[in-house]
Amino acid sequence: MVESEAHKKYEFKRTLEALRNKKGRGTELISLYIPHDKQVHEVASQLREEFGQASNIKSRVTRQNVTGAIESLLSRLKLIPKAPENGVVIFCGAVDVGANKTDMETYIIEPPEPITSYKYHCDSAFLLTPLEDMLHEKKSYGLIVLDRREATIGLLRGKHIEEMAHLTSTVPGKQRKGGQSSHRFQQLRLIAINEFYTRIGDAASEVFLGVDPKDLQGIYIGGPSPTK
Rank of each mutant, 00 (worst) to 15 (best):
H121K: 14
A99H: 12
G98P: 01
L156C: 01
G173D: 10
K119N: 12
H160D: 15
R148A: 03
V95I: 09
K138S: 11
K78C: 01
Q180T: 10
D103M: 13
G142P: 05
G178F: 14
G98T: 07
E105W: 04
G142C: 00
Q186F: 10
D133F: 13
S140G: 10
I144C: 08
Q186T: 11
K78Y: 02
R76Y: 14
N86Y: 04
E150G: 04
E162Q: 15
I90A: 09
G179K: 11
K174A: 13
P84Y: 10
K174Q: 14
A165Y: 11
R184Y: 12
P130H: 04
A94L: 10
E71R: 14
S182M: 09
N100H: 10
P130A: 07
L143V: 05
Y107Q: 11
H166Y: 08
I161S: 06
E110K: 13
E71G: 12
I80E: 04
P114S: 03
A94M: 02
L155R: 00
I70E: 04
Y141F: 13
P172V: 06
L73D: 00
L135R: 07
Y141L: 10
I108D: 12
E71D: 14
K119D: 13
S72Y: 09
V88Y: 02
K139L: 13
S75H: 13
F126N: 03
I153Y: 08
E113Y: 13
G87V: 01
K177E: 14
V145R: 05
Q175M: 15
S124Y: 13
M104D: 04
P112Y: 09
E113P: 07
A83M: 06
L74A: 00
G179R: 03
